[in-house]
Amino acid sequence: MAKDKPPKTKGVPNKHLHSRSTFLYQAATYLTLHAAALDANEAPDSAQSSGTTGSRHRLALQLASDLQNVSRKGQVRLSSELKRTICKTCNTVLIPGRTATQTIENESKGGKKSWADVLVVMCTLCGSKKRFPIGAQRQEKKSERQPTQAQRSLSEKSAEEPTSIASPMQMTTDQDSTPG
């Protein structure tokens, strides 16, 4: 007699890893924003508040590093939007205007090609840059693409032609061997 299998649970596998990674990201973002706001508001002669700001910033870096480690160790893929907001070099949460600067570059023939725009995000802490294409549409996967008219006509022509074509060497030897 067959054993009864337990019912499959619906939902996200490794839910605890997803919840942990979202918490780490939210905490790192909060501490980065809070530390940046304190940096902007503090007076230059107050040494006590700068110590707490530095510790908040170090804690934010540690949390972002822990986020990377949790996702690697648990083999959980982070979303591309989340990965774009974390510096690969120093693990800073990249917030435009606070910890990162954003510029748009177009180095194509004097900027004439509008689809060649590139968003450059530079980390203000370590100076590393991330480049993301904008304006260009991503090509579909090969399995999802429809063949173009030129590809269809080529495949039809190749189907009509004979499969064995004699080489010029074979043709000359055939002609030489025929009685004449």
Rank of each mutant, 00 (worst) to 15 (best):
Thr52Lys: 15
Asp45Lys: 07
Glu107Met: 11
Asp66Ser: 04
Glu161Tyr: 11
Thr89Val: 07
Asp39Met: 05
Asn69Leu: 13
Leu154Pro: 06
Asp45Asn: 09
Met169Phe: 13
Thr178Ser: 12
Tyr25Arg: 12
Ser128Ala: 04
Glu81Gln: 08
Gly135Thr: 15
Gln26His: 12
Ser21Val: 04
Thr124Ser: 01
Ser19Trp: 06
Ser65Leu: 07
Met1Ala: 14
Met1Pro: 15
Val93Ala: 00
Lys157Ser: 05
Leu94Ser: 01
Gln48Tyr: 11
Val93Asp: 00
Arg138Tyr: 12
Met169Cys: 02
Gly180Asn: 07
Ala60Gly: 08
Lys141Tyr: 07
Val76Glu: 02
Phe132Ile: 09
Gln75Asn: 06
Lys83Trp: 01
His57Trp: 05
Gly180Arg: 12
Ala116Arg: 08
Met122Trp: 01
Thr148Pro: 01
Ala159Lys: 13
Thr173Asn: 10
Cys126Phe: 00
Ala27Phe: 10
Leu59Phe: 10
Thr101Ile: 01
Lys10Gln: 14
Val118Thr: 06
Thr101Phe: 00
Ala60Gln: 05
Cys90Ser: 02
Met171Phe: 10
Phe23Pro: 01
Leu61Val: 06
Ile86Met: 04
Asp117Pro: 01
Lys130Val: 00
Leu63Ala: 10
Val70Ser: 03
Cys87Arg: 00
Asp45Ile: 06
Thr22Lys: 07
Ala43Phe: 08
Asn91Arg: 03
Thr92Met: 00
Tyr25Asp: 06
Lys129Gly: 00
Ser143Asp: 11
Lys129Glu: 03
Asp174Leu: 08
Thr29Gly: 15
Leu94Met: 11
Pro13Gln: 13
Asn14Asp: 15
Gly51Tyr: 10
Thr53Ile: 14
Glu107Arg: 14
Pro96Thr: 03
Gly51His: 10
His57Glu: 13
Ile165Ala: 03
Gly135Ala: 15
Ser143Glu: 15
Thr9Asp: 09
Thr103Ala: 12
Lys5Ser: 04
Tyr30Thr: 08
Ser50Asn: 07
Arg84Trp: 09
Thr124Asn: 02
Tyr30Pro: 06
Leu82Cys: 10
Gly135Val: 15
Ser79Asp: 09
Ser164Gln: 13
Thr92Ser: 01
Asn91Leu: 01
Thr172Lys: 14
His57Cys: 05
Ala159Arg: 13
Leu82Ile: 14
Ser167Cys: 02
Lys109Asp: 14
Ala27Cys: 07
Arg145Phe: 01
Ser158Leu: 15
Thr53Val: 09
Cys87His: 04
Val120His: 09
Thr178Gln: 13
Ala43Thr: 12
Lys129Arg: 04
Arg145Met: 10
Ser155Val: 13
Val118Ile: 11
Leu33Phe: 02
Pro133Ala: 08
Gly11Pro: 09
Ser50Leu: 12
Asp4Pro: 08
Val12Tyr: 15
Thr52Asp: 13
Asn41Pro: 03
Ser49Trp: 04
Lys130Thr: 05
His57Ala: 09
